[in-house]
Simulated scan of single mutants.
Amino acid sequence: MSLSPLIRFGTSTWTYEGWQGQVYTRPYAKTTFARECLGEYCQYQYKDEPLFRTVCNDATFYRPPTANQLRRYLDQIPEDFEMCFKVWEEITIPRYATQARYGAKAGQPNPRFLDPTLFKDLVLIPYREARFEPHTGPFLFEFQRHGLSAHEFCARLDEFFRQVPKDFRYAVEIRNAGLLGPDYHQVLEAHGVAHVYNHWSYMPQLAEQHRRMGSFTAPFTVLRLLTPLQMPYEAAKKRAAPYTKIVEELPDMRRDTVELVKKAVVEKRQAYLLVNNRSEGNAPLTVQALVDRL
């Protein structure tokens, strides 16, 4: 394949039992599958080359990894592999949702929203302790839909990125389409932070996101192909399970993805492309189709 080394393909997490017989051919005990299958994920080949050179660790949205967890990953990943990590939700949600898992905090404002000290002390330190930096892809700040004004959100984002270490890379994923535009672009560009082009239920098409942004904002870009547009998450999950096959191709998503990746490569930017099963039904097959188109 003549795929540019600037492009890294991966999936949203790697621990899907539905991929056994496809990505995973070794026998695993059910109790150890999630801990042991990362190495085989990294070795999975398409057209005689490793297909995945990155992956998104979604679990770190719910709690930061420990240094020991990161060391276990190091034991399984090859030298040229980078893992992208979702940032702990304690830093990215301005108000706790009314969900039982938040207990007494449900519905309350989050005093730790975009707290740079918390991020440095509880999120970043384990990466340094484990010496994981060479394998750390962009940290992904996923901001779900919220009621902050564009001015307040951009101001808080600007203040946060002024205070965090510059030796890691950061990317911001928004779910409020109204934030796309010059103010948001200016904040990201000022700090070398990437916008995450997310193909998600209620966001515009990827090409439209780029039109509103005007240009890339960092030396790298991130694309996350999550769900079909105009389809709620639960409906997408039900449609795609058990993630063993393509249930429906999304031609516009594929076209826009390829065009954005090509633009990034022409401009000599790295491109991290992360595919979720819930977009078309089986992320590895979607990745293969995108590789073929590129």
Score class of each variant (00 low, 15 high):
L225N: 06
E189K: 12
F33M: 04
E234S: 14
T217G: 07
T117S: 11
E249V: 12
L274H: 07
K105D: 09
V187D: 09
R169K: 09
I91Q: 00
T60A: 05
R212G: 01
A155R: 08
E17A: 15
G21L: 03
W88I: 01
E259W: 09
I7L: 04
Q186L: 04
K245N: 15
G39N: 01
V23P: 05
E173K: 07
N276T: 06
R175G: 02
E208D: 13
R211N: 12
K120C: 14
W88Q: 04
P5L: 01
I246S: 09
R72W: 14
R128N: 11
F132G: 00
T227I: 03
E234Y: 05
P284W: 11
V265E: 10
L6N: 08
R26M: 15
P242V: 07
F52Y: 08
K105C: 11
D121H: 10
M253I: 13
T31P: 09
A218T: 12
C37K: 04
A264Q: 05
G107K: 00
Q270N: 11
G18N: 14
L274V: 07
L285R: 10
Q45W: 11
I246P: 12
L285M: 07
Y272Q: 05
R131I: 06
P204C: 01
I93W: 08
L74V: 03
H151F: 07
K237W: 15
T11E: 10
T244P: 10
Q108K: 13
E259Q: 15
E280R: 06
Y28D: 00
F113E: 00
L273A: 08
P232V: 02
S215Y: 10
W200F: 15
D292H: 10
H146V: 04
L6I: 04
M253G: 12
C37V: 00
R239Y: 11
D48F: 10
S149F: 03
E208C: 07
K105F: 06
S201I: 10
Y41D: 06
Y16T: 11
T15S: 12
Y24P: 05
L179H: 08
Y243H: 02
A150K: 10
A171L: 00
L114P: 00
I93H: 04
P50G: 02
I174H: 04
E129C: 08
N57M: 13
F85Q: 05
L74N: 06
Q20L: 08
V55K: 08
A177F: 10
R278K: 14
A150I: 11
N276S: 13
R293L: 15
H146I: 00
T66Y: 04
R255W: 09
Q99P: 06
Y272F: 12
L206R: 07
I174V: 01
K237Q: 15
N277S: 05
R269P: 02
V23G: 03
T32W: 14
F168M: 09
K30R: 13
V187Y: 02
V196E: 07
C56K: 09
V23Q: 11
R278M: 13
T15F: 06
D252W: 11
D80R: 12
N282C: 14
H191C: 02
K262E: 15
Q22D: 15
